[in-house]
């Protein structure tokens, strides 16, 4: 089974890290590098397990994090101790990059708000507009939420233990069809229900890949009732 699903919902390693930091209300000027590195690598592993195409940038950031972590463990070089100035915090450069990037994500948010007003303001146009130039995938639930939810499901399956080997291996295509069948009956289903009765780790992964594929094909929509609420899968209007 070699499925490559490319997701561009995280805008990159910086976006990913900022999400981690914001979600856990970490002080950006005092990042617990060991903890963050651990979580970062955990998610990379999860993505690898899903055969998600991990962009090179994610790996570069992983090595940066490990490098910072190791520098924090080492005593500062002698010259720095003797010098008048205090040694530079190895985290400094990363913090500056995160802060810089964060300014622009906020600026982008401001632009989005303006856009949402002005897309409803019409004037005369000559040029055929933006029509058909961009396909946007709209995820009201971020990939981060989705991965977190998925992680919980996986953990639960592992707790139950015991891998049942299925003779007829369930393919992603089969699972896609099953999910669509369910949605045709109910139009919406809770995320967790998709994994109910899954007989093992492999089936859970196949189900998740099927869901990602459906999102990519814009056949389903993922929504969350409230912040941190349960995630629901909706069939997109035909």
């Amino acid at each position: 089974m070699n499925y490559q699903v490319k997701l561009e919902i995280f805008e990159g390693p910086l976006d990913f890290l900022l999400n981690l930091i914001k979600e856990q209300e970490i002080d950006i000027y005092d990042i617990p590098i060991a903890q963050i590195t651990h979580q970062y690598l955990e998610y990379l592993d999860l993505m690898r397990e899903l055969n998600l195409d991990i962009a090179g940038e994610f790996l570069v950031m992983a090595s940066t994090l490990i490098h910072i972590k190791s520098r924090l463990l080492l005593p500062p070089p002698l010259e720095e101790v003797e010098g008048e100035e205090e040694g530079i915090d190895p985290r400094e450069e990363l913090v500056q990059r995160l802060l810089e990037y964060n300014k622009f994500t906020d600026a982008a948010e401001g632009l989005r708000e303006r856009e949402s007003v002005f897309m409803n303001v019409y004037g005369r146009e000559t040029s055929p507009d933006y029509e058909g130039l961009e396909e946007d995938v709209y995820l009201e639930v971020s990939l981060f939420d989705l991965l977190s939810a998925f992680k919980k499901v996986l953990e639960k399956v592992e707790e139950r233990g015991g891998e049942i080997i299925i003779a007829d291996e369930l393919t992603v295509t089969d699972r896609i069809n099953q999910i669509l069948e369910t949605l045709k009956e109910d139009t919406a289903t809770p995320f967790a229900d998709l994994f109910e009765g899954a007989s093992g780790r492999m089936e859970v992964i196949v189900t998740f890949l099927a869901l990602l594929e459906l999102i990519r094909l814009r056949m389903v929509q993922v929504r969350q009732g409230a912040e941190f609420g349960s995630i629901w899968i909706f069939l997109r209007g035909v």
Binding site: E11, F104, A108, E109, M119, Y122, E135, D136, V137
Partner: peptide
């Protein structure tokens, strides 16, 4: 036009697609 009538104009032009930009584009 004023934004409150945007929905109607959209319907008039039979616009299907969103005219909004992606996160990557906005950043």
């Amino acid at each position: 036009t004023k934004p409150e009538y945007g929905e109607w104009i959209k319907k008039f032009f039979r616009e299907e697609r969103k005219r909004t930009l992606s996160q990557a584009a906005l950043e």
